[in-house]
Deep mutational scan, measured.
Amino acid sequence: DEVTIHLGDKTIRVDGLDKELLEILKELARRGADEEELRKEIERWER
Rank of each mutant, 00 (worst) to 15 (best):
D1L: 11
D1W: 05
E2C: 07
E2P: 11
E2R: 07
E2M: 13
V3E: 13
V3P: 12
V3I: 14
V3H: 15
V3A: 14
T4P: 07
T4E: 14
T4H: 15
T4W: 02
T4I: 15
I5M: 02
I5F: 00
I5P: 04
H6M: 08
H6E: 13
H6Q: 15
H6T: 15
H6W: 00
H6F: 01
L7F: 12
L7I: 14
L7E: 03
G8S: 13
G8V: 10
G8K: 09
G8A: 10
G8N: 08
D9M: 02
D9F: 01
D9W: 00
D9C: 05
K10E: 07
K10I: 14
K10P: 06
K10L: 14
K10T: 15
K10F: 12
T11E: 13
T11L: 11
I12P: 02
I12Y: 01
I12H: 03
I12C: 05
I12S: 02
R13A: 10
R13Y: 10
R13S: 10
R13V: 13
V14Y: 04
D15E: 14
D15V: 15
D15N: 04
D15L: 00
D15S: 15
G16C: 07
G16N: 13
G16A: 10
G16I: 12
L17H: 07
L17G: 05
D18P: 14
D18E: 10
D18F: 06
D18N: 09
E20S: 12
E20W: 08
E20M: 11
L21C: 02
L21E: 01
L21A: 02
L21K: 03
L21N: 00
L21P: 00
L22K: 07
L22N: 02
L22Y: 08
E23C: 02
E23F: 04
E23Y: 04
I24L: 12
I24Y: 10
I24P: 00
I24M: 09
I24F: 07
L25G: 00
L25N: 00
L25Y: 01
K26N: 13
K26F: 08
K26Q: 15
E27I: 05
E27F: 01
E27K: 04
E27C: 09
E27A: 07
L28G: 01
L28F: 01
L28V: 02
L28A: 06
L28M: 15
L28D: 00
A29V: 13
A29Y: 05
A29I: 15
A29P: 00
A29D: 04
R30Y: 05
R30E: 12
R31M: 14
G32E: 01
G32C: 02
A33V: 08
A33M: 06
A33P: 00
D34A: 10
E35L: 11
E35K: 05
E35M: 11
E36V: 11
E36D: 14
E36G: 11
E37G: 04
E37L: 09
E37D: 13
L38G: 00
L38C: 03
L38M: 09
L38H: 00
L38I: 15
R39K: 09
R39D: 02
R39W: 10
R39V: 05
R39T: 04
R39N: 05
K40Y: 04
K40C: 03
K40W: 04
E41F: 09
E41C: 06
E41W: 08
E41V: 11
I42F: 03
I42S: 01
I42G: 01
I42N: 01
E43A: 02
E43I: 04
E43L: 05
E43W: 00
E43P: 01
R44E: 14
R44N: 15
R44P: 00
R44M: 08
R44S: 12
R44G: 11
R44H: 14
W45M: 07
W45T: 03
E46W: 04
E46V: 05
E46S: 02
E46Q: 12
E46I: 07
E46R: 03
R47T: 15
R47V: 13
R47G: 15
R47F: 04
R47D: 15
R47L: 13
